[in-house]
Each structure stands twice: as C-alpha cells, then as structure tokens.
Simulated assay, not measured.
Amino acid sequence: MFATRYIGGIRATFSLIGFLLIWEMVVRALALPGYVLPTVSAILEQLWRQQQPLIAAAMTTSQQALLGFGIGAALGVALAVALTFVGRLRDALMSIVVAINIVPMIAYAPLVVLWFGVGMESKVIIVACEVGFTVLLGTLDGLNRVDKRSVDLLRSFGAGPFELIRKLRLPSALPSILTALKLSTVRSIIATIVVEMLGAYQGLGWTIFQSVVMSDFLTVWAAILVASLLSLAFFGLLAWLERRLVFWQ
C-alpha cells in the first residue's frame, strides 16, 4: 500500500512538472503578453521578489480559513447529530437549511461584510457557513448508513440513543465526515479569498484585488500560486489525517 501511494505521488509530481513545462513553452512559443498569460518562470521570479508580503498575506488568509473551517466543521457535525434525535422534524429543518444554501454562500458575502465589517469576523462567518453545510450533509449520510442489524444488536444490550451515537453511528460515519472535510478544504480557502476581495485590509484576496487595480498581473499570478499551494497543503493534511483515522479502508 505504501509503495502504491509512493508511486502515485511520483506520477502526480511528474505530471505537475510536465504541465508547467508545457505552459512555459507554449507561452514562449506564442509570445503571449504578460497580461494575458505570463511564463511560469516570470511568476516564480515575482513570487521570490514579493515573498515577504505574500507570506504575510497567506498567513492572514490561512488563519481566517482555518478558524472558519473549525467552527463550520463542529457546527455541521453537531447539527447532524442533533437532527438524528428529531426524526420527525428532520425533513422540515433540512428543508430550511437547503433553502438557505440553494443560493451560493458567496452571494451572501456583501451582506455579511456590510453587517460585520471588513475584519476577520466576516470571513470566518462565510467560511463557517460554507463548510458547515458540506459537513452537515456528509455527516448525515454517514449516520444514516449504519447497518440496522448493528443498531438492533446494541439496543438488545440496552443501549440508548446517546450510546448508539457515540459507540456506533459516529464511528461508522467517520469516513463520510472526513470526506466532507476534505471537500471543504478548498472551499474554505476560496471563500476566504473572495470575501477578502470584497472587503479587507490584508490577505491573499486583498493582494489579488489591489494588484488587479494596479495592473500588476505578475503579482496576481504569484498570489494565485500561493493560494493553490495553501489549498494543496490543507487538502494533504486532511488526507493524511484520514489515512490515520480511517486506517481500515
């Protein structure tokens, strides 16, 4: 299994390197202007020149994304568990939650910025809502996939609803929960950057917006590269955690 993952990692690395080399060669061959599509080497040079402000912006964005991610994940799991205890009300409550989330959460961002300002609060709230809905659906799916025979067996030994949740439903739902958390990693970074574009004094989104205003397209691409690396690192951390916690799969 380790060898398979190692080989898969090598293939992914070479695929990424090949893609970047093709990008570099195509841009040079077509002599595309930098404002249309810069070369990879130019983006890396700009990243090196602007490393300190970009690192500071990445720290701000990651802090807001992680805080919103943690709050959203906790609320999503807690709400899913609570809904399992109110079976008759679950459909009605889920209808309200789904109705709110029919509109992409980013569409609420201008209102949230207006209500809570351009500080950290607006970013954390949007990320928490974005992540919470995904985790809620994933947790509910996992909680409902429990084998009925296992439920009946525990009930025959006198297990109550809380013991069923703690000893059976939550452990069985762990793979679904972690899958939802992995899907939410990239969403949390994207949501944070978008809200930063609408109103902020720092962060990658603010850097991208300011660079576009000043027509500094190399810095835009450098910030996008940093955001991509941040998302990959976040996703990789959750994937590593999944392998440790759901080792039986």
Rank of each mutant, 00 (worst) to 15 (best):
Y35R: 01
M105F: 08
A58Q: 04
P104M: 05
D152R: 15
L241R: 02
C129E: 05
R244W: 06
P104L: 07
Y201Q: 15
Y108E: 03
L37H: 06
V97S: 03
E45W: 13
S211L: 05
Q52E: 10
I224S: 10
V131C: 03
L181M: 15
Y35F: 15
A74P: 04
V118D: 08
V246M: 04
R5T: 07
V212Y: 12
V103G: 03
M214S: 13
V127W: 03
Y201A: 14
V220A: 01
Q210W: 03
V36E: 05
Q52R: 06
G236T: 04
V27W: 09
L181G: 12
A239P: 02
L178K: 07
V124L: 03
A31T: 09
G203D: 01
L114V: 09
S188D: 01
G199L: 07
D216E: 13
A227M: 01
A99L: 13
R187G: 13
S211P: 04
C129S: 10
I224M: 14
G142W: 03
I71K: 11
Q202S: 15
A65F: 02
L137P: 09
K182D: 10
V124I: 14
F19S: 10
M59T: 12
Q46G: 04
L237M: 15
L140T: 05
L114A: 12
A222H: 01
T139R: 01
L237Y: 11
S172L: 09
G199C: 04
L183N: 13
L183P: 06
I17V: 15
M197C: 12
I102L: 11
S62D: 05
D147W: 11
G119A: 12
T13W: 07
T179F: 04
W248N: 11
A29E: 12
R149W: 07
Y201T: 14
A74E: 02
A191T: 13
F157N: 10
I96P: 02
L181H: 13
T139A: 14
L174Y: 08
L183W: 07
S150Q: 07
P53A: 08
E242A: 12
T61C: 06
F157L: 13
V135H: 00
G117H: 12
